[in-house]
Computed example of a mutant assay.
Amino acid sequence: MLVGYARVSSVGQSLEVQLEALNAAGCEKVFAEKRSGTTTAGRSELADALSFVREGDVLVVTRLDRLARSANDLHSVVKKLTDKGVAFQCIQQSSIETSTSTGKLLLGVLASIAEFEADIRRERQREGIDRAKAAGIYKGRKPSVDVAAVRALREQGLGGSEIANQLGIGRASVYRALSG
């Protein structure tokens, strides 16, 4: 059985193109979610897909980065699949298929390239933020906690949980405001 997995990073993005490609590839069941791909943790549809597949099945994705953004995560998922007797196929990247030696080699090479690209993108983003900070343009996120209000309520004798409830913030934010 061909089982598809589709993922986009944010709610505003569309899964439509991936779903169409997976259906065109013959996937009988498709799991889809809108979650970040920086880690496999917290991706319930991926976990469901990995639980669903059985020996002889093939897990299909449109591109490698839809499954994992790091080589470690990708190899971990592929190992889980291999241990279950499930093959892996990527349709838009030279039809990578782990049932062949060449496919396994290509998977490793492309996973390394994908991780390299992600690292380069993070470095460029960090450089841009550092330049913007130096120029006084980038100030970071605006504070969401009114530190003065937190301290005033503490002086009135309220505890951390009471302050958090009254201001609609988390307790950890209260304690950070009090310590900072």
Rank of each mutant, 00 (worst) to 15 (best):
S9R: 10
V61H: 05
K133Q: 14
F31K: 08
A148F: 06
A24V: 00
F31Q: 09
E97S: 15
G85N: 00
D119S: 14
E117Q: 14
R126K: 12
R171D: 01
A41V: 13
T39M: 03
L50C: 15
G128D: 04
T38W: 00
R121I: 15
S112Q: 12
Q166N: 08
G37Q: 02
T100I: 07
R151S: 02
V8Y: 07
A177M: 04
S14I: 02
K139P: 01
L15V: 09
V8D: 02
L2M: 14
S51K: 14
S95P: 00
F52L: 11
V11F: 07
K84P: 04
D119G: 14
D65W: 01
E20Y: 00
R54W: 00
C90G: 01
D73C: 10
L178F: 08
A6W: 05
T38A: 14
A87C: 01
E117G: 10
T39D: 09
N23G: 09
Q166E: 12
T40A: 11
L2K: 15
E123L: 08
R69Y: 04
S14K: 10
G56W: 06
L59F: 02
Q166L: 11
I129M: 09
T40H: 00
S179V: 03
T102H: 02
R43Q: 11
T38Y: 10
E162N: 01
F116R: 01
G159R: 09
V147D: 10
L15H: 11
Q18R: 02
A32P: 04
A114Y: 04
A118F: 05
V78N: 08
S70Q: 11
K104T: 04
E45M: 15
G159T: 06
E123K: 13
V145P: 05
S44A: 15
L19Y: 01
A47R: 13
